[in-house]
Design a protein around this nucleic acid. Structure first.
Length: 588
RNA sequence: CGGGGUGUGGCGCAGUUGGUAGCGCGCCUGGUUUGGGACCAGGAGGCCGGGAGUUCAAGUCUCCCCACCCCGACCA
């Protein structure tokens, strides 16, 4: 029993000024967490209870699917991460430190290497596989911008698990087991989620899906088909079907176009100086060629041109995912200086491609379909070219999905329009493949006595982030409204009595009766505090059932309120314990 | 890293043309109250984010840092 006269908690009447999103604001205000460091939070007794409940649900389901819990140090030596190149690849996001002997260490941002080496250390036969291991552990990432309280911290609690299989079928099975377990976990947490296709290019794996909780303040955007079941992170959307343009277009021709270095100025100029007969020119009639720099892992740089319709922006993250491990940035002034044949604002495909004079690799977005005609730069200042047809007048070195996805784009499965929504990533399942196993030399003997490289999956759930996500989904203007499975207690019992009157005595007895019936009770036993204050605190703290011993005791009844529905019932004193137990077991 | 905003008791805020810091909530003591964040009286609590400078005098003016929040860049 948590008595409010004893419990280490202080609710705040005002919102903290540094908290913007609801979960952060309410968790601080209701006394669940306190900020202790940039991106780091102290868990107070109420918050710690919720976190442990979430953690235990995750643990139970992982154990049920047959994964085994282990626990690594958070403090890890550099050499392990050196082997996979992540000591440098992780860059500034890695917390690094040096011990007294000058040796480098890091605080683990994730533990693929450690798990891989642990299995390598102990197992060497196909008979040992498959195996799935997991841990629930504090992770450290030196985020450029921690934000929104628990939603993105620099220190956070994560469940990460890894599966080890002998072949692709085994990996697929392990992957499905995890995916199914994740569905059960989020259902038990009461947390709404969608499963979306995620980027898999970055780490060389094949299948990768994210569990997103659809909340407005989330940092990820994803698409959902309005007709079929397709959904994907916007970074990972595949292009819709391509329909080649089979119509005939006029011969291409040059058009003097002074002072038209931007798409908008070009479209305006076209409509005044070379109007179309069928409709006005639009930005989507122009071909925009965007110059990028690829930074290859070996340190070399490559200039790359990407052609997209003029009404679209390029999505560098999406491009990067397809060109991984190279990193992508916009071509800077020095880069342009190295290619004097590029006329900024008037770059056209005739000057691009590995076969062209510039030798610059040129990739087209698939929406620039074969046979389509474009207005684009003529590679000289103040001149554009009309009716330049893909396949007739220019070619490219290949295609790349380069444009940012917008609502209304066609679904890759069924062509129906896509819609865009936002969410927060609460889980990720990922077929890693053999990348880590081969780099770190994890192989086992198969039944023919041959060495085979193990194939791995990696699976994560943000446990502390899940707490914030639940708060984000379940609250109103009065406070939090926890699902029963994770609430810090089952019942919030309010006594409105003064010292040692009938109400106080009845409340004390009811509190211990509820406890005896197996319920977790938060008991507001404060005297000299007005009922209004207690009601406000109960709403703020958000335990699903609030029981009030007060003025209705005169009629022999107790008030029972439901925080979620707002409903209120008066129950005979003798029946209250059973009534509340029923509510609890029904999960209402 | 770029843009914008904010730093003053635990929380929310005010502080004028520079003159040695105030309000509400919370906290302590006593009293009156007790069904929707009560009231009266008396208290405790602050190197005004940090440093340098200007000045007889700096919360206030100047410069430089730092932290936090929001947007972007980046990123599980």
């Amino acid at each position: 029993m948590l008595r409010l006269t004893q419990l280490f908690v202080r609710t705040l009447r005002d919102d903290p000024s540094d908290a913007e999103v609801a979960s952060h604001r309410l968790l601080v205000r209701a006394g669940y967490i306190r900020r202790a460091a940039p991106g780091g939070y102290t868990w107070l007794p109420l918050g710690w209870r919720v976190l442990r409940k979430v953690e235990n649900i995750v643990r139970e389901e992982m154990d049920l699917m047959g994964a085994q819990e282990v626990h690594f140090p958070a403090l890890l030596p550099r050499d392990v991460y050196e082997a996979t190149g992540r000591w440098t690849e992780y860059g500034d996001n890695l917390f690094r430190l040096v011990d007294r002997k000058g040796a480098d260490y890091l605080l683990g941002p994730t533990h693929e290497e450690m798990f891989t080496l642990l299995v390598k250390d102990l197992y060497s036969s196909y008979k040992d596989l498959p195996v799935s291991l997991y841990q629930i552990q504090t992770k450290y990432r030196d985020e450029a911008r921690p934000r929104a309280g628990l939603l993105r911290g620099r220190e956070f609690l994560m469940k990460d698990s890894y599966s080890f299989d002998i072949d692709d079928d085994g990996l697929a099975a392990s992957y499905k087991q995890h995916r199914d377990a994740y569905e059960r976990i989020f259902q038990r947490l009461g947390l709404p989620y969608v499963i979306v296709q995620a980027m898999s290019g970055a780490m060389g794996g094949s299948q990768s899906e994210e569990f997103l909780s659809p909340i407005e303040v989330g940092e990820d955007s994803y698409v959902r088909c309005t007709s079929c079941s397709y959904s994907a992170n916007t970074e990972a959307v595949k292009a819709g079907r391509v329909h080649p343009d089979t119509s005939t277009h006029p011969e291409s021709s040059l058009l003097p176009s002074p002072n038209c270095p931007t798409i908008a100025s070009l479209v305006e100029y076209l409509n005044t100086h070379a109007p179309r007969t069928d409709r006005p020119w639009e930005a989507r009639d122009t071909l925009k060629n965007v110059m990028l720099t690829l930074h290859h892992p070996d340190g070399s740089n490559e200039t790359l041109a990407v052609g997209v319709p003029g009404d679209r922006d390029v999505d560098i993250k999406r491009i990067e995912a397809q060109l991984s491990p190279a990193e992508v940035s916009a071509l800077d002034d020095a880069g342009f200086a190295a290619h004097p044949q590029l006329v900024r604002g008037y770059i056209g495909p005739q000057m691009l491609g590995t076969e062209s004079p510039s030798g610059i690799r040129y990739l087209l977005d698939p929406s620039v379909v074969h046979g389509s005609a474009w207005v684009t730069g003529a590679n000289q200042k103040d001149v554009h070219v009309l009716h330049l047809v893909h396949g007739r007048d220019f070619t490219a070195d290949g295609t790349i999905e380069a444009v940012n996805v917008v609502a209304g784009d066609p679904c890759p499965n069924c062509d129906a329009p896509l819609e865009i929504a936002r969410g927060i990533e609460i889980g990720h399942v990922f077929q890693l493949g053999r990348k880590y196993a081969s780099t770190l030399g994890l192989s086992v003997l198969d039944h023919n006595g041959k060495q085979v490289t193990v194939t791995m999956g990696s699976y994560g759930i943000g446990v502390s982030r899940a707490v914030a996500s639940i708060a984000e989904v379940f609250h109103d203007d009065k406070g939090l409204k926890w699902p029963r499975s994770v609430a810090p207690a089952d019942v919030h019992l309010v006594s409105t009595g003064k010292n040692n009157d009938d109400i106080t005595i009845a409340a004390e007895k009811l509190a211990s009766d509820l406890e005896d019936a197996g319920l977790d009770v938060v008991f507001d036993d404060r005297v000299g505090v007005s009922p209004g204050v207690k009601f406000k605190d109960a709403e703020l703290i958000g335990i699903p059932t609030v029981v009030i011993v007060g003025k209705s005791l005169a009629d022999g009844t107790i008030e029972v309120r439901d925080r979620h529905s707002g409903s209120q019932e008066n129950i005979a004193l003798a029946d209250v314990v059973n009534y509340v137990c029923d509510l609890h077991s029904q999960g209402q």
